[in-house]
């Protein structure tokens, strides 16, 4: 895939946000907040960083593989997959409807291209990503495994089983990113279950940790992912703490948990879309 300019990538981010809002609005269900906050990450990954082939093969041999552990960001993932050629953009309109490949949470259901494992029940993705990373090592395939997790998701114990395992085996062909927005369904993470010092936690588990402080600034996100890549192959798993704002891009949605799992009304949708330019054409 040809490298795109920051301006072009920015336009894709705007379109992704429009897609997410229209998708969850259409079925009056789903999770708009986190995918809005991760638009820059999704676009930087799929349109710049990932060495991948939209002509999808399950085993991902000879390409980088991405896993989404916090499956409720499905609307954002489906949008970036469609926009980068995995399946027709028009299929986004089937999101969460009966007989769709675009399940509420990602699934290998009817073999939707781009999805390699189901996610939704939280805390499982890092383990799966580690297995895929070790499979690459056995195959002597030097491509990378990427994974996105939520910060609230880190409250699941399995994540820390996987964290310990990754360092023990020196799984250094994996870049994990945490969507560090400080929000979860019931409220701010500091109130629900404080994550305290995440950087120190991951470091104590034996990971190389970088912080991307401006997770909604495309240039910073790209720099962070480049830096993370430069740290692979050195015997340690790599953690990218990505500071984002939930609901970023829509003024009345940003920075609150209230849009974690609630769809906008007709009026709210119109207001939100008015803030986001249609760049690639709506589905």
């Amino acid at each position: 895939m040809e490298k795109q300019s920051i301006e072009q990538l920015q336009k894709i981010c705007t379109q992704l946000r429009r897609d997410v809002l229209r998708m969850v609005h259409a079925v009056q269900s789903g999770h708009p907040g986190a995918p809005l906050g991760c638009a820059e990450f999704f676009v930087a990954l799929y349109f710049d960083q990932l060495r991948h082939n939209p002509d999808f093969k399950m085993d991902g041999k000879g390409e980088d593989i991405f896993f989404l552990s916090n499956g409720h960001l499905s609307a954002g993932w489906y949008s970036v997959l469609a926009r980068s050629g995995y399946f027709p953009v028009e299929e986004l309109k089937t999101f969460r409807k009966i007989n769709s490949r675009l399940q509420g949470h990602p699934a290998t259901h009817e073999h939707l291209p781009g999805i390699r494992v189901a996610s939704g029940s939280l805390g499982q993705g890092l383990s799966v990503a580690l297995g895929a990373a070790q499979s690459k090592k056995l195959e002597k395939d030097d491509h990378l495994i990427y994974i996105l997790m939520g910060d609230g998701e880190l409250q699941e114990g399995q994540v820390w089983e996987a964290a310990m395992y990754a360092a023990h085996f020196g799984v250094d062909n994996l870049i994990a990113t945490v969507d560090y927005n400080g929000q979860q369904i019931d409220g701010p993470t500091t109130e629900v279950m404080d994550l305290k010092n995440l950087k120190a936690k991951w470091e104590a588990f034996g990971w190389e940790v970088i912080e991307t402080k401006k997770g909604n600034d495309l240039k910073s996100v790209l720099e962070g992912l480049e830096k993370a890549k430069s740290l692979t192959g050195k015997g340690k798993p790599v953690m990218n703490l990505l500071y984002t704002e939930m609901g970023y891009g829509v003024d009345f949605m940003v920075g609150t948990h209230k849009w974690h799992g609630s769809p906008p009304s007709d009026e709210q949708l119109a207001n939100a879309l008015g803030q986001l330019e249609e760049t690639l054409g709506d589905y």
Binding site: Q124, L126, V128, A133, L138, M164, Y165
Partner: peptide
Amino acid sequence: ERFFQTGIAEANMIGISAGLAIGGKIP
């Protein structure tokens, strides 16, 4: 090289197995 001691962490073991299977292994 084809064997992974996961420690006392069964949930992680199941996930890692699924990942290995994605890559074409038979865990």
